[in-house]
């Protein structure tokens, strides 16, 4: 797992993808930060995160996930990986954790904004902490979904578009009928923003993440038979 994790993480920053991801996120985050806190004169730092999830995260998470398996499949390097004495579980987890680390770095970088805000007025730190944790859990669920989609195709663009489509659909579905609320991950993120640590939602995110990781492993194992 470590070998794959190390290499994957390094590759994010050898190619421009890692920088593009972090740069795009922080640029949008700055804009939201300005509008929500400084422009309107409030200290609701968690609201910035909530908006960042909806308007930024869902569109740029595929940047991290689209190439995971699709690229290996297309270039054939999948053969090197799968014929090595490493387990499929280790390979999948390595790739997943590498992408998660990029999100963690991005999140740590947003602490700069928190510092700026603290200069004016210190917000409720507990709420901010819970929100940031929820943000990470939500990202992990998204990454595992994106990874699963990437394992299904050898075309990165298809992987990215399908992933975004699923994100957008689950975001908009509750507008059609409230019975779709269960499918919306944003609704599940909302309790974190209020500053309460929601156990149900946390279990929900974690189990979603595990489910898609397991599905990815199943897809990769099955490919041995089908290919």
């Amino acid at each position: 797992m470590w070998a794959v994790l190390k290499k994957e993480f390094k590759t994010y920053f050898l190619s421009p993808i890692g920088y593009v991801f972090i740069g795009l996120f922080l640029a949008m985050f700055s804009l939201l930060f300005y509008i929500i806190t400084i422009y309107s004169g409030t200290v609701t730092y968690q609201a910035v995160f909530y908006n960042a999830v909806i308007y930024v995260l869902i569109f740029i998470i595929p940047l991290l996930t689209m190439r995971m398996f699709a690229e290996e499949r297309k270039s054939g390097t999948e053969q090197l990986l799968m014929t090595s004495p490493r387990s499929i579980v280790g390979i999948t987890l390595g790739k997943f954790i590498a992408a998660t680390l990029v999100v963690v770095i991005t999140e740590l970088l947003t602490l700069i904004y928190l510092g700026i805000l603290c200069y004016f007025k210190v917000p409720d730190m507990a709420t901010v902490g819970v929100t940031m944790l929820g943000f990470l859990l939500l990202s992990m669920a998204y990454i595992s979904l994106g990874m699963f989609i990437s394992s299904l195709t050898e075309n990165q663009i298809v992987a990215a578009i399908v992933t975004i489509a699923i994100f957008v659909v689950t975001w908009l579905l509750p507008n059609l009928s409230t019975s779709f609320l269960q499918f919306s991950l944003f609704e599940k993120f909302y309790p974190y923003v209020t500053g309460v640590f929601p156990i149900t939602e946390t279990i929900n995110f974690v189990s979603l993440t595990i489910m898609f990781i397991v599905l990815t492993i199943i897809v990769l194992k099955r490919r041995k038979l089908v290919k």
Binding site: A3, K7, K10, T11, L14, S75, G76, Q79, L81, R86
Partner: peptide
């Protein structure tokens, strides 16, 4: 194994690639 069509990680250097294979 040296597969057909020589698949390689294009963004790595030669040494990094061999090192990665050694780790794997």
């Amino acid at each position: 194994y040296m597969p057909e069509n020589i698949p390689l990680y294009q963004e790595l250097t030669v040494r990094e690639f061999v090192n990665y294979m050694a780790e794997l």
